[in-house]
Write a protein that binds this DNA or RNA. Structure first.
Lengths: 153, 153
DNA sequence: GGTTGACCTCCACCTAAGTCGAAGTTGTTT
DNA sequence: AAACAACTTCGACTTAGGTGGAGGTCAACC
């Protein structure tokens, strides 16, 4: 535990996080991460930026936008210790969204699973034929499929 | 059950599916859905397109790209009944991906959950401070965070 | 103290996933 | 058969999330 560097250059952050330096500047511009500057105007990052980046990339991976992430992180001010209610806000608002997404994914997967298990070569009982479309009855006013993709704040 | 329409116009599909007509044309251009044409060159859709759309939107919602969806659907040729191995291919390749995404989501959510439960107002044990970053030890060759966002085929 | 690589800003460009509008055609209704 | 909504194509534009290069500066080593 000798020389854990106090601060990291952009190159070091890029290497350690796997996030390209171009993206790091982009995230900074978007207010997702922050840096100090040296006398010579170069960025220096606190090591905690790595966790932030991991969080950002994970959130992105599961389909959340940078704006979502930004909104969430913005509720945790960088310069003061978050209060319990800061946490509550972020946590509960995200959990609802995350739960919904987990559920959607699970249903998608299970549909595939049961499909392959059922031997339904005729597509008779497969997802492409039964995919929550039972409202397609005759007459007008058939309910719409729920609007998907909304990037809810 | 009188007059279930055999085919649907683009407007009807848009209304029933909730997918804008502009997007429907776009999906067709990308080969995700198909239509017949009338003598006068207007699109007519089989009702099964609604399931396909629901599938597409669900997949998108959980962060899969249209290219992913296209690749998957392309393995199920539109004009012949899918074989068991058609299904196997789609199903198993997607399940791996879906499982991974479900897992990532769940970990994200659980981190948030335990965080709010732990009373860690100092951020000492919170995700922003502990988010899989324990490889940030001194010395070179610290393993990168896994590359996120790859849109794997 | 000079070279070399890492860094800086700015700007143009890129892909994905669409949207919008113009200008013309079709289909339905009266 | 006239009106009008719904359709057609096509090209320009949009937003998100970046990438890449030009032209210049900083820092670290010899």
């Amino acid at each position: 535990m000798s020389k854990l560097p106090e601060v990291l250059t952009i190159g070091q952050v890029a290497e350690r996080s796997g996030v390209p330096h171009t993206a790091l500047r982009f995230y900074e511009e978007r207010g997702l991460i922050a840096s100090e500057r040296t006398a010579g105007n170069q960025r220096r990052y606190a090591r905690s930026v790595l966790r932030r980046l991991a969080f950002i990339r994970t959130a992105q991976r599961v389909g959340l936008s940078l704006e979502d992430v930004h909104a969430a992180l913005a509720t945790l001010p960088d310069n003061r210790t978050p209060t319990k209610s800061d946490w509550s806000r972020l946590s509960t608002s995200w959990q609802t969204e995350l739960d919904a997404r987990i559920d959607a994914l699970r249903r998608l997967r299970d549909r595939l699973t049961s499909c392959i298990g059922c031997g339904c070569l005729s597509l008779r009982s497969c997802f492409l034929h039964n995919f929550e479309d039972e409202q397609a009855v005759d007459g007008p006013g058939a309910p719409k499929l729920k609007p998907v993709i909304e990037g809810g704040t």
